[in-house]
Simulated assay, not measured.
Amino acid sequence: MRSVLICDDEPVLRMSLKNKLKDLGFAEIIECSDGEAAVASALSRLPDIAILDVSMPKMDGISAAKAIRKKLKVPILLLTACMDQQTVAKAKEAGVAAFLTKPFRDQDLWPAMELAFAHAHEMDELREQVEDLKETIESRKVIERAKGVLMRSQGLTEPEAFRKMQKLAMDKRKSLRQIADAILLTES
Rank of each mutant, 00 (worst) to 15 (best):
115 L>V: 10
73 K>L: 10
119 H>Q: 14
92 K>E: 04
134 K>V: 08
140 R>P: 03
87 T>E: 07
68 I>N: 01
84 D>E: 08
128 E>F: 13
80 T>S: 15
92 K>S: 05
162 F>D: 10
70 K>G: 12
121 H>D: 15
91 A>F: 02
122 E>P: 03
113 M>F: 01
97 A>I: 04
68 I>S: 04
59 M>A: 06
68 I>L: 04
128 E>Q: 14
82 C>M: 14
87 T>H: 06
158 E>D: 11
135 E>S: 11
79 L>G: 03
124 D>Y: 11
82 C>W: 12
116 A>L: 04
144 E>A: 15
114 E>P: 05
85 Q>S: 09
100 L>M: 10
88 V>K: 00
115 L>F: 12
73 K>T: 02
84 D>K: 00
75 P>E: 07
132 D>K: 15
67 A>T: 02
134 K>F: 08
128 E>K: 14
119 H>D: 10
92 K>C: 01
130 V>Y: 09
126 L>K: 10
159 P>G: 08
61 G>A: 08
162 F>C: 02
95 G>W: 06
93 E>Y: 00
102 K>F: 08
143 I>R: 06
94 A>F: 12
123 M>T: 12
161 A>L: 10
142 V>H: 07
151 M>D: 03
75 P>T: 07
81 A>P: 08
97 A>V: 03
107 Q>N: 14
124 D>A: 15
58 K>T: 11
63 S>T: 15
160 E>Q: 13
106 D>F: 00
60 D>V: 13
139 S>W: 00
111 P>E: 03
124 D>W: 11
65 A>E: 06
158 E>A: 14
76 I>Y: 05
93 E>P: 05
117 F>P: 07
90 K>C: 09
163 R>F: 10
107 Q>C: 09
58 K>N: 14
88 V>P: 05
107 Q>S: 13
103 P>Y: 06
58 K>D: 07
148 G>R: 09
70 K>I: 06
93 E>C: 00
124 D>F: 10
150 L>W: 12
106 D>C: 02
140 R>C: 04
60 D>P: 00
131 E>A: 14
137 I>G: 05
59 M>P: 03
92 K>F: 01
59 M>G: 00
89 A>Q: 07
102 K>S: 04
138 E>L: 11
121 H>K: 11
78 L>Y: 04
59 M>Y: 05
154 Q>H: 13
93 E>G: 03
112 A>Q: 00
166 Q>H: 11
122 E>H: 09
123 M>G: 06
118 A>R: 09
77 L>A: 02
117 F>T: 06
66 K>M: 12
77 L>M: 00
133 L>F: 13
70 K>P: 10
112 A>R: 04
153 S>M: 13
105 R>P: 04
108 D>C: 05
80 T>H: 00
162 F>M: 13
137 I>A: 13
146 A>E: 01
68 I>C: 05
104 F>E: 03
70 K>Q: 15
145 R>T: 09
133 L>G: 06
141 K>T: 12
94 A>Q: 08
139 S>A: 15
132 D>M: 15
148 G>W: 02
141 K>F: 01
166 Q>R: 12
103 P>I: 10
155 G>K: 11
94 A>C: 11
123 M>K: 12
129 Q>K: 15
112 A>S: 13
84 D>V: 02
149 V>P: 08
102 K>V: 06
96 V>L: 09
132 D>S: 14
117 F>H: 09
97 A>Q: 13
163 R>I: 01
70 K>C: 10
105 R>D: 10
148 G>Q: 05
97 A>E: 15
131 E>H: 09
158 E>K: 14
136 T>C: 04
92 K>T: 00
